[in-house]
Design a protein around this nucleic acid. Structure first.
Lengths: 160, 160
DNA sequence: GTACTTTTACTCGGATACCGTCTGTCCGAGTAATTATGG
DNA sequence: CCATAATTACTCGGACAGACGGTATCCGAGTAAAAGTAC
């Protein structure tokens, strides 16, 4: 019942891509190296992000990834959906029907309403935070020095 | 990332125990039968609930389980904690430290604050609903007929 | 120097294996009510 | 009839097997830039 590490890694990947100048791309292994993630697995995450229209992929030599939407328009919830899929976080099996021996599908389960409520509560939290807002916080904190170091490091690795 | 079925089953178990008159107990297999759950596994759930002080166990012949606290004082969150454990739902690995090459533990991860925020949002939803409030909704709906049938069925199985 | 081919460095996508957690099963031990036994 | 022992019906708690989903690895295919080649 923990959030997938893939979601967290993806957020950081997007933060890194956010540092790129326009039209530049970053190869996948550069990102996974920096994150300490397994390159082969990380590729799959990036493809999921691409499929969700959060990033664009450029194949071929000097290929890589870059943001497709502006960082303000990418919420953590978007990342969550891209990686985790759109299936509900909380679902009930509707055991109530069997317990009360009701006809199935006669009425949705009592817990279901609570589950969807919990889910929207989560959604609101995740939708409030965007790649842009997180990046902003990064710069605002004591990270300035390390942040620009990261930026430079990425610059040297990027292509085009 | 779905809620464990054990939590849902436990809630229904507590709802059934809530139908018992004072001082009566219900054997575990009666409950698991009604829920269609595996008896041996369900025993473990009940023991977790007992350890969390939500229900009392009476061992020996004519033994069984009954609520320990009043249904108003048992929230879904209590059940959640009892079954799922008190570990955090959402945790971040703090990859940010490695990405920025910071000293570890220098500063808590940016995502952590969002995670705890999401968690408290969940917690609030789960804490609002109690066994009593769910039971009340059950009676209020079209379930009345089936509900009393369930009640009678439990009466015949209970001991003491 | 231009057109063509080959190499190279990437992404794309599927097949597959690993591993941790949740689910489920089994068994021995403890406990208390009931029943059986002995005097 | 009373005290004691054996049986019975439960919970308790650990050990362990199975199922499932997230993580991770590998491989072949596609793609586009770069490098090599021919004329």
């Amino acid at each position: 019942m923990q959030i997938k590490t893939g979601v967290e890694q993806s957020v950081y990947a997007l933060l890194m891509l956010n540092l790129l100048p326009a039209d530049a791309v970053l190869p996948a292994d550069v990102i996974s190296d920096r994150l300490g993630a397994s390159p082969s697995y990380f590729q799959k995450l990036l493809r999921k992000l691409a499929k969700a229209n959060l990033i664009t992929s450029v194949s071929g030599v000097k290929g890589g990834f870059k943001l497709k939407k502006s960082p303000e328009d990418i919420t953590v919830y978007d990342v969550y959906l891209a990686i985790e899929g759109s299936k509900n976080i909380f679902t009930s099996d509707g055991i109530i029907h069997e317990v009360l021996e009701l006809e199935k599908q006669e009425q949705s389960c009592l817990l279901s309403s609570m589950m969807t409520e919990a889910e929207t509560a989560l959604q609101q939290v995740f939708e409030r935070e965007t790649i842009a807002s997180i990046a902003q916080k990064l710069e605002a904190l004591h990270y300035i020095e390390e942040y620009s170091a990261l930026k430079n490091s990425i610059f040297t690795k990027m292509v085009k």
